[in-house]
Design a protein around this nucleic acid. Structure first.
Length: 281
DNA sequence: CGGTACTCCTGAAGGC
DNA sequence: TGCCTTCAGGAGTACC
């Protein structure tokens, strides 16, 4: 599942392909993904100079000199395949969008579950557009801190795990890294937000950043159906501490798993949470 | 207005 | 073996 580190990795993989290049042709193999493609999408981006490529939350943003922005969200199963010039393209199921580049390279957006989104917007809409207006701070920016988070969540009735998944509180953290960060910080995912001390929030913020930075450094971790932006299969980080490890021992665990049952799996607002009840009180 | 439940979708995995 | 059911999840929407 692409979360912030995976999106960052895809963005960095796209950068060298997009720089000093431009899109000559956009091929839409259907009319929508999760939402319809912007009707003017082709006109907005074809043969326009690419200004820069950025990331906001889990969106990849390609800025063009005509003040248009192409926003790409990978959803759950979206991936980008890059074909070098003259590299043979063999169409696959779920290849929904193809970007042909001036130099002959191709970028292919594939998304089996179609939870992704591709749309364009104007530069000046970045703060008002409904996809971005409500978003909280970037976790790796100066706007994200323990003081901010404690204040933001002081009157929330939800658990800390649910709050971390809420993109109005902090962006980019998905189910996997929320579990991992809470484990690392030693916080029970069921803890109501107001019960967490500032000191614990300090620890949590530190752990969120560590977990995200570690995954970015690893080239973006992923699960089954994620592909690396460089055209190769994505790096599969299977060394999560708790995620998808129900019943197993957590790292450096000294307790008897046959007695404790190991890592527990619970469901919070329809999402799986994995945690160690001994280490996360 | 805050919080919860539901929805979209397909492929993998599990059950019988 | 093979068909059927269940589950995974980001984010928008409906609803109380």
């Amino acid at each position: 599942m692409p979360e912030l580190p995976e999106v960052e990795t895809v963005m960095r993989g796209l950068e060298p392909v997009l720089n000093n290049n431009h899109i000559t042709k956009v091929t839409l193999n259907r009319s929508d993904l999760r939402i319809p493609f912007t009707p003017t999408l082709k006109d907005d981006v074809e043969n326009q100079t690419i200004h820069s490529i950025k990331r906001r939350a889990k969106y990849i943003l390609i800025h063009f000199s005509n003040n248009k922005i192409l926003a790409i969200h990978l959803g759950m199963s979206g991936s980008m395949l890059i074909l070098k010039p003259n590299e043979l393209y063999e169409a696959r199921v779920h290849d929904h969008v193809i970007f042909d580049m001036k130099d002959g390279a191709r970028i292919i957006y594939n998304d089996p579950r179609r939870f992704g989104m591709i749309f364009t917007l104007n530069n000046d809409e970045m703060t008002s557009h409904k996809a971005f207006a409500h978003l909280g701070p970037e976790p790796l920016s100066n706007h994200f801190s323990a003081v901010y988070l404690k204040d933001k969540l002081k009157s929330k009735k939800s658990s800390i795990k649910q709050a971390l998944l809420d993109q109005t509180n902090v962006v980019g953290v998905g189910n996997i890294y929320a579990c991992e960060a809470l484990y690392k910080a030693g916080i029970n995912p069921l803890t109501p937000c107001p019960k967490i001390s500032l000191a614990k929030y300090e620890e949590l913020v530190r752990c969120i950043c560590e977990v995200l930075r570690g995954a970015i450094a690893a080239g973006g971790s992923t699960l089954k159906d994620f592909r690396h932006a460089d055209g190769e299969l994505g790096y599969f980080q299977h060394n999560f501490a708790v995620y998808d490890r129900k019943g197993q021992a957590c790292p450096n665990c000294e307790c008897d798993v046959t007695k404790t049952g190991g890592i527990e799996r619970i469901v919070q607002s329809g999402r799986s949470t994995f945690y160690c009840a001994r280490k996360q009180k």
